[in-house]
């Protein structure tokens, strides 16, 4: 789903002066389960990324506005209420409208296997399911995400 620009950036080795990868960890929807999001935010920070955490109860609009303001390279979304099929694609759609379609969107939470391919088709790059280790997520961000500009 990444644009040609993002692919080019990814192939290019970041030079010495390259800025840190900026990741937005977002909690869309109304559920308050933020244990996973907070642990991941901390693990990404400890792995050397610049992390912005939105806090709870965000609308897709709020998340995308933060993504624009903070000029992030990736967004990790966490949701445990079952509203992922509506809210994840909405974030991708709004990013594209803001010409930020090259931001890598990944997610996790209570997400049945049957829903994963549908979410991927709608532009969510990767879904992590319960039991995923922090190092898997850190490796994924390292390999998949490059600074956009």
């Amino acid at each position: 789903m990444a644009s040609a620009l993002a692919k080019k950036k990814r192939e290019a080795k970041p030079g010495k002066g390259a800025r840190k990868i900026r990741v937005l960890v977002g909690k869309p929807g109304l559920d308050g389960h933020d244990r996973g999001a907070k642990i991941i935010a901390r693990a990404l920070r400890d792995a050397g990324f610049e992390v912005i955490y939105t806090g709870l109860h965000q609308t897709p609009e709020m998340i995308v506005n933060t993504a624009v303001q903070e000029d992030v390279d990736a967004i990790g979304l966490s949701i445990l209420s079952g509203a992922h099929n509506h809210l994840f694609p909405k974030v991708v759609e709004l990013l594209r409208k803001k010409k930020m379609g090259n931001v890598v969107v990944f997610g996790g939470g209570i997400i049945p296997d049957d829903d994963i391919s549908g979410l991927r088709k709608k532009g969510v790059d990767r879904i992590f399911t319960p039991g995923t280790t922090l190092s898997e997520i850190v490796d994924y961000v390292n390999k998949r995400v490059r600074p956009r500009a």
């Binding site: 929807g29 109304l30 559920d31 109860h57 609308t59 209420s81 079952g82 509203a83 992922h84 099929n85 509506h86 809210l87």
Partner: peptide, 22 residues
């Protein structure tokens, strides 16, 4: 469900995708 817990009726925009889910 979450909209009730958070004080929104089911037809509120913030309830989209959440109705009856949890």
């Amino acid at each position: 469900h979450f909209p009730t817990l958070m004080g929104y009726d089911s037809d509120h925009p913030r309830a989209r995708g959440e109705v009856g889910m949890c």
